[in-house]
Design a protein around this nucleic acid. Sequence first.
DNA 1: CATGAATGAGACTTCATTCAT
DNA 2: CATGAATGAAGTCTCATTCAT
Lengths: 207, 207, 207, 207
Amino acid sequence: MSGRVGRPRDGDSAETRRRILDAARASFAKDGYRATTNRKIADEAGITSGAIYHYVESKAELYAAVYCDTIDALYTEFERIAAAESTLLRQYSAVLQRACELQMHDPSITGFIVAVAQETQRHPDLLERLAPQRGRHARFFSGLVADAADRGELAPDIDRRALADLLGAVLTGLARMAAAAGDPQRYTAAVEVLERFLDGSLLTPSA
Amino acid sequence: MSGRVGRPRDGDSAETRRRILDAARASFAKDGYRATTNRKIADEAGITSGAIYHYVESKAELYAAVYCDTIDALYTEFERIAAAESTLLRQYSAVLQRACELQMHDPSITGFIVAVAQETQRHPDLLERLAPQRGRHARFFSGLVADAADRGELAPDIDRRALADLLGAVLTGLARMAAAAGDPQRYTAAVEVLERFLDGSLLTPSA
Amino acid sequence: MSGRVGRPRDGDSAETRRRILDAARASFAKDGYRATTNRKIADEAGITSGAIYHYVESKAELYAAVYCDTIDALYTEFERIAAAESTLLRQYSAVLQRACELQMHDPSITGFIVAVAQETQRHPDLLERLAPQRGRHARFFSGLVADAADRGELAPDIDRRALADLLGAVLTGLARMAAAAGDPQRYTAAVEVLERFLDGSLLTPSA
Amino acid sequence: MSGRVGRPRDGDSAETRRRILDAARASFAKDGYRATTNRKIADEAGITSGAIYHYVESKAELYAAVYCDTIDALYTEFERIAAAESTLLRQYSAVLQRACELQMHDPSITGFIVAVAQETQRHPDLLERLAPQRGRHARFFSGLVADAADRGELAPDIDRRALADLLGAVLTGLARMAAAAGDPQRYTAAVEVLERFLDGSLLTPSA
DNA sequence: CATGAATGAGACTTCATTCAT
DNA sequence: CATGAATGAAGTCTCATTCAT
């Protein structure tokens, strides 16, 4: 009865879903959850905004889908990386390095992840949906610390949670700094300085 | 109709402005720029949303006003603190400590500041307005590093901007972590671990 | 910054609220809850659709507001009318008569009321909001029946709830019929026939 | 309807059509035309929403199809029932009784029918489509009344249309009341009281 | 026949902003 | 200075409908 409504030609479902998730991650990372509109995501993915609802039930669910999609890939990779090293410092160093490479390759991955904590705090409805998958981040660093403690690397009176918090916060802080600067090189450079901190070659002996 | 319109009694304009800025900072820090509504700020400040426009021209201008109000106080304080110490490590340590106290006392100050970089990236119209005051943050850490270099504390081939980035990112990362955890104690604990990193008592000698 | 936004001249709050409620009742009665759009109500009331939210929190709340506004006036009137008569039949007759006059004067009142039961069944969120006020309808007819029973007008084995249901259903059925026909005269005519049923002059003696 | 020209549909197709019509009637009766979505109907019928368009051209057409399907069965039955009685009162009584049984057996039949008048008023596009079949309802009661008049049962000055309206409205009002109460028993009980009204055993002699 | 991806219109709702009072 | 009514743009989400497969 009306004019040009309905499905157009073609449509590869799996590929469209991929495009939606990718566009969503990019926008969530860059603009944040609130400022990301369905419209923007849809435009980027080459569909109309209503079509998103064929793949997810709501914007919050979309965020959760991106989260699942991303967190798993990232920490699986980090765990693989860490397993190849034998001391906490070397493991952390390797992780920082890998994060650095990722940031150069696709800033939206780290950009999305480092913002998750804030977004969930600001939008409680996200928290509920992420709950099942939450803790992966904390668990990773807790695991590193626990293993180091088991290997006797740490002073026995160390507050382990605090150490895990520290490691996570430094990684996050650096990633954010680089994102804010809009220049992944800054991350690389800062990590290099951090490495020199750790190996003692940053400060002059007298200091 | 009701005759209940118009300005009510008294009018300590300066005090109202204070309440608006405080309410705004708290909400910007907790909920972010986008999710903060004029209505929420006004409610908190005990006025109506329209009245905000007697003090600022727009929401973006309000953000800028809060920024000026906060950044100056914070970095003036940091500069005072730093001036009392004589090495980069001690200065940074003192700043972390002070930031820690501030976080316990009023989390909205650090919460607001650490989010500025992200907000300005997400809302370009904020960037313009903050531009005049921007750089205070970077300048502070750059200053610390430059002074340390002048004093000969640093290895000569160090990338100074990268070191400043690192110091800023670590502070920011820790503050954010604590904010996300909703527990300022986490910040304190992590700073303590960081201190032990720096003085060498974190890792066991063998490691 | 943008063009023509903001409040225009004038604005008598109480009168606007009245216009909104009246427009809403008319549309709810005519088109039903679902098919009534904020836009239509707003157009009718001479405002924009967003302005409705200064007066009610949601469309459902608006329905509830109309309900309160209407039900009270209607049944208070019915109770007044009924109090002036001394037998159930005369009371019912008077109520039918009054309903008839109302229907001629403003069909939206009865139109709205007779649809309430259906709307609440179809939209459960309305039911919650009406709950406090609900029962006024049933209570009115139950009251008439109980009083008649007390006066000894009814056969003692009568199912009182069923009688109340019957009285309500007949009134409702007639009002609906007239609304569907779009002609209040049909209501009047049918009531007249009903009266003749009751006084025995409808059917010929032999029948 | 049964005398279809041309090639009869194959077995599966006819059964699917049946399921669509049944699901549609149930949902139209329960939720109304607007709130009934193609999706709900399709789910209930065990197909996808697009498939509906193999059987009808639009949602409005589907409503019309359900109408034809239902109205014919109902009034054919009513006419059969009425033919077995010899006075208007007995005929009406029998019809009420039969409607009662139907309501117990499948509330969607009466539920759908009693809502038709309202739905057509609310959605004018339905009216056009139903027009050819409309009038069956009115014709039935008009017929009863005309026959009674011919038999000399009615006072000669009676407004026949008004009497037909009354009979229809009472039946409709009762069915609706029961539907709203969610309890078909209420219909039965109210009909019993109505019967006692008609045979004079409701009110005490003195009244 | 049937699926399911996709559209486009439109619904409810929120919000920064303006302005008469 | 302050209120509160009102706007208009925009956002999330729903749905009848279409069409390639």
